[in-house]
Amino acid sequence: MHWSTAFLMLICIGSIVAMQIPSLMVFFGGRTPLRIVHIFSGLLLPFPLIYGFVKYKNSKFLKSDLRDLGHFSTDDFKWLKSWGKDFELRLNKFNGGQKANYAFMCGSIVIMIMTGIVMQSYTLLPLSFRIGATFTHKLFAILIVIVLAGHIGYAVFNYPSLKSMVTLRISRDWANAHCKDWVDSVDNENKDIF
C-alpha cells in the first residue's frame, strides 16, 4: 500500500513538474500525454489504500496497523510536542509524525481529487468555481511537496526505519528505543521480524 501510493504520488508530481519545463514537456511528447498521465495517476491515488482496506479487512495485522495509524493517543501528542525527542513515551508502531503525515496525505488526496475534477469541468460549473478549484489544487500541491519532502527527509535520517520499510525487518534495539509498546505487543510467533 505504501509503495504503490508513493509511486502514484511521484508520477503525479513528476508529470506536473515536466509540464512546467518546456524542454521536458517536449521530451515526453507534449502537454497532452503528460496531462493524461497526471489525471489518471491522481485518480488512482486512493485505490491502493481502498484495496488494502477491502482485501485485508479480516487481517488482524493490517487492521490493527491501520487503526493505530489513524488514531492519535495522548502520548502521540506529547511526542509531537517534544518534536520527536521524548522516547520515554511508550509509543506504538507509528509515531505522531508518521500519523500526521498519513492524516495529511489522506486528506490531501481527497482535496486534490475534488478540486481536480472541478478543474476539468469546463462548461458544467461557473468559472469562479474553476478558479477556486485551481487555486486550492495549487496551494495543496505546494503543501504536499513540502510535507512529502519532510517525510522522505525523516525517513532518510532515520535510516533503520526506512530500511525496515523495504526489508520488513527491524532491529530490536531500534524498536525498543522508538516504539516500545509495539515491541511488547508483537506475538511470540512473529519474533522473526527482529
Binding site: D68, N92, A103
Partner: peptide, 23 residues
C-alpha cells in the same frame, strides 16, 4: 503479528483530516 495494546486508540485524526479537508 502486531496487535495493538489495550490502551485506548485515541483520537481518530485521519478520519477527521479526510472529512475536514473535504469541507
Amino acid at each position: 503479528m502486531a496487535v495493538i495494546s489495550n490502551k485506548s486508540l485515541g483520537k481518530p485524526v485521519t478520519r477527521r483530516a479526510v472529512l475536514g479537508f473535504g469541507v
